[in-house]
């Protein structure tokens, strides 16, 4: 059961102190920001995209250990992937990586904020770069209904 104190295992605590892919990308092709109104977690994601592939991704902002660890894992998973594959990333991919499958409802938004930002960033990018942007609305809906 990943609740209470158990969720604070080595990896979460380490990533919260030393997050992966933390920072900004100066010449990003897309950037997106969002926050959780109730807890104040706040995340920006910058991406560099070439040939329909995420060549670089960084995040910055403030959040709890769960938020920082999940943002680290998400950006690590995303880096190098084709946009089609990035679209397929689901919440389970992040949560399972960190053993957070049973995270209590009140903390799930901390874990998934960065995924929400990623989906919104992708939606923004595809909306301006695709000749045929049909079907990208599902991304927006997914972001809105993530938690």
């Amino acid at each position: 059961m990943s609740s209470g104190t158990d969720i604070y295992h080595e990896m979460i605590v380490d990533y919260s102190r030393n997050p992966l892919n933390y920072g900004e990308i100066e010449n990003h092709d897309v950037t997106f920001h969002d926050s959780n109104p109730l807890c104040g977690d706040s995340i920006d994601i910058d991406m560099k995209i070439d040939n329909h592939k995420v060549t670089d991704i960084k995040f910055h902002g403030r959040g709890c250990a769960i938020c920082m660890a999940c943002s680290s894992v998400l950006t690590e998973i995303t880096k190098g992937k084709s946009l089609d594959d990035v679209r397929k990333i689901q919440k389970h991919d992040i949560l399972s990586e960190l053993g957070l499958e049973h995270l209590q409802a009140v903390r799930i938004k901390c874990a998934l904020l960065s995924l929400k930002v990623l989906k919104s960033a992708l939606y923004t990018y595809l909306g301006t770069h695709l000749e045929n942007s049909d079907g990208i609305d599902t991304l927006k809906t997914e972001a809105e209904n993530l938690y």
Binding site: T5, Y8, C39, A65, I66
Partner: peptide, 11 residues
């Protein structure tokens, strides 16, 4: 982070 403090001491 305060949320992590709150969660741990909630136990």
């Amino acid at each position: 982070h305060p949320h992590d403090v709150a969660q741990i001491i909630d136990q």
